[in-house]
Design a protein around this nucleic acid. Structure first.
Length: 593
RNA sequence: GGUCCCAUAGCUCAGCUGGAUAGAGCACCGGUUUUCUAAACCGAUGGUCACAGGUUCGAAUCCUGUUGGGACUACCA
């Protein structure tokens, strides 16, 4: 990479000119800001001690040295302490010639030295997926792709929260309603059906609580003593005891939910290498808690409940097992962590989970450390911010939850309207048109969500998020389609015929080339930050630069055949980078739209 | 009470490992189509980077405090 080459030469220059040893890694060389002339900028301020000269003189010294000793440097200019280095056109032409047809451009090949597991989605089986899950799923998928692009060997998994009081609530409501509704006989999607029963339970429960409170019971007492709650807890005990009928109903209802989830996952384009089920890992977790007791890193309270003391780490005491011996949420996470490591032996285990669970994952990591697990340090919580609506948080009680399936359908419907209105899709078959609108609708949704830094909470405004202009997925998809159209018109080319000496580098071409050159760095940067948003915003920059180039210069009508060929190759690489970056984001890109 | 996160244009977001004049999109205003896809391009307007100190050649960026918002702190998940 040229920037590291520049660093080496600058370090050498400092040594030669001022007799000081500087490591190239200590230097910062960055792309020059667009308002200034030059390709890369080196800031000399930090090295004035070494040079014992003023900033302008120091920058000039180094610039002069580079110009003489480093052939790709064609010029330089100095503004205050900023040395702007200009590279020869030949450098940029060579870059394009070498990479325009390289499929792996920007990707680091996997060498097997790093194995990473990405857990995401991780739904409860009592409710359909909503907008929050969409962010989770898109992030998880994209981060996994991003890590693959950075040379990690990646596995994805989905930990299903299939047991616990929540599913018992849905089961109870269904049983009380006569145990007759099924997805088949109601025509409802399985997860929606089960979700409806969860709501039915909640309604009944609330009514009971209200009655109890009116009879003079304290709210806290009423919460615990409402008959529905007691029944649900009884059902959970029966489940843990392995009661045949309970297990059978549980299996039946969960399978409905899985069928429903599969439909949504498929629409979203996400998939998992492996599924874990809490029902299969919580017992292992219990064993490990006992292991911790034996080791003396956990302790028992008088009533028999098991705790870990994390006060030395700035946290509190945390419950690991209830007094009645049943497990809590973290118990199964302990078991799952162990199982994951046994099965996949990853040195890093990423949990894509909302930031409301920051505390939980701190506890988990500390618990695993106390258990002496070697993989404890590899636990990483990718903590993303909540999705909020214009009115505030989504609340199921207030009916402000944005359903995942509904949202996807709306986005596709809007895409369809726009496509029809523009009327550019003549000649496409029905199925192709449907495919195109799905691509655009999902592209809009995915890009809207992924362009935001995962760590930040984000606002989802249904009106604005379906915009297809500006910094949006469809704009970038459109740019790709536009390029593909040019390339189709260009027909086959022979890159061998290109003679660099016949070329001129114009400003829009150079801007675009500089951006394309940064693709590998963008992948690396996004990977290190685990932020697909970095790549999304990069893609947007590329699309913008291409459209500028497209508008300013003619491609196919250029009379100089070398220049024409060069521009076609520039189109090829641009299309590839957009397609490749969008693939990492999990967004497809159309040939025409 | 304790712990953690956040605050940048009217709105939504970049920029944050310290570097030049803080950038985009949307909205609003104006312009561009006999030319390879106008879902495009070009221009104008819009800022006390919450506030106050500090660190230094240099702070939106790092540190401290204040204010405002949010999350967590359940024998829920």
């Amino acid at each position: 990479m040229i920037d590291s080459e520049l660093k080496k030469h600058i370090a050498f220059a400092i040594n030669k000119l001022y007799g000081q040893q500087i490591l190239p890694e200590q230097l910062a060389v960055e792309p020059t800001k667009t308002d200034f002339k030059g390709d890369f900028t080196f800031v000399v301020f930090p090295f004035l001690k070494q040079s014992k000269k003023g900033p302008e003189q120091t920058a000039t010294d180094i610039g002069e040295y580079l110009l003489k000793e480093f052939s790709v440097v064609s010029g330089y200019n100095v503004i205050k302490g900023f040395l702007n280095i200009e590279l020869s056109g030949r450098f940029w032409f060579d870059f394009l010639i070498h990479n325009h047809n390289l499929n792996s451009f920007g990707f680091t090949p996997a060498d097997g030295s790093s194995r990473v597991l990405v857990e995401y989605s991780s739904p409860n089986t009592n409710k359909p997926l909503h907008l929050g899950h969409i962010r989770n799923n898109l992030l998880g998928y994209s981060v996994a792709e991003l890590l693959k692009a950075n040379g990690h060997t990646v596995f994805t998994c989905n930990l299903i929260n299939d047991r616990g009081i929540h599913i018992c609530k849905s089961m109870l409501a269904w049983m009380k309603a006569g145990m007759k509704d099924t997805p088949e006989n109601t025509g409802k999607k399985g997860d929606k059906l089960v979700g409806d029963y969860y709501v039915a339970f909640d309604k009944q429960y609330k009514a009971e609580m209200k009655a109890l409170i009116e009879n003079g019971m304290a709210e806290e007492e009423a919460e615990k003593n409402a008959p529905s709650m007691l029944e649900a807890q009884e059902l959970l005990r029966k489940w843990e005891a392995g009661d045949a009928e309970t297990i059978s109903i549980w299996k039946k209802m969960n399978s409905w939910v899985y069928d429903g989830f599969d439909v949504t996952y498929k629409k979203l384009g996400v998939s998992f290498d492996k599924y874990y089920y809490e029902s299969e890992t919580y017992l292992l977790g219990k064993d490990m808690v006992k292991e911790g007791l034996d080791k003396g890193v956990f302790f028992t309270k008088d009533n028999g409940s098991v705790w870990v003391d994390l006060t030395a780490d700035g946290l509190d005491q945390k419950l690991l097992l209830r007094a009645d011996g049943t497990s809590v949420y973290i118990t199964q996470d302990i078991g799952t962590a162990e199982l994951k490591y046994k099965e996949l032996a990853c040195n890093k285990s990423i949990y894509v989970v909302g930031n409301e669970q920051d505390y939980h994952f701190k506890v988990l990591q500390l618990v695993m450390q106390k258990l002496g697990k070697p993989y404890a340090t590899g636990i990483y919580h990718l903590s993303y911010g909540m999705v909020e609506l214009p009115h505030g948080k989504m609340k199921s009680r207030e009916g402000t939850v944005v359903d995942a399936d509904d949202l996807i359908d709306e986005m596709i419907a809007t895409a369809t309207e726009t496509t029809d209105a523009l009327g550019k899709t003549e000649g496409l078959k029905e199925a192709e048109l449907k495919q195109l609108n799905e691509t655009i609708g999902l592209g809009a949704l995915k890009y809207f969500i992924l362009k935001v830094d995962p760590r930040k909470k984000m606002l989802f405004n249904p009106q604005e998020s379906i915009d297809f202009h500006g910094n949006t997925g469809p704009f970038i998809q459109y740019t790709h389609a536009r390029i593909r159209s040019v390339l189709r018109n260009a027909g086959a080319i022979n890159a061998e015929e290109l003679n660099r000496d016949e070329l001129q580098l114009h400003e829009p071409e150079k801007k675009l080339l500089e951006l394309l050159y940064q693709y590998p760095a963008a992948i690396k940067d996004a990977g290190q930050q685990m932020s697909p948003g970095v790549l999304a915003n990069y893609s947007y920059e590329v699309a913008k630069a291409y459209n500028h180039f497209y508008h300013e210069l003619s491609i196919l009508k250029e009379s100089n055949t070398h220049q024409r060929l060069f521009r076609i190759m520039l189109c090829t690489l641009t299309a590839h980078v957009i397609k490749s970056a969008f693939a990492i984001l999990g967004i497809q890109v159309p040939e025409r739209m």
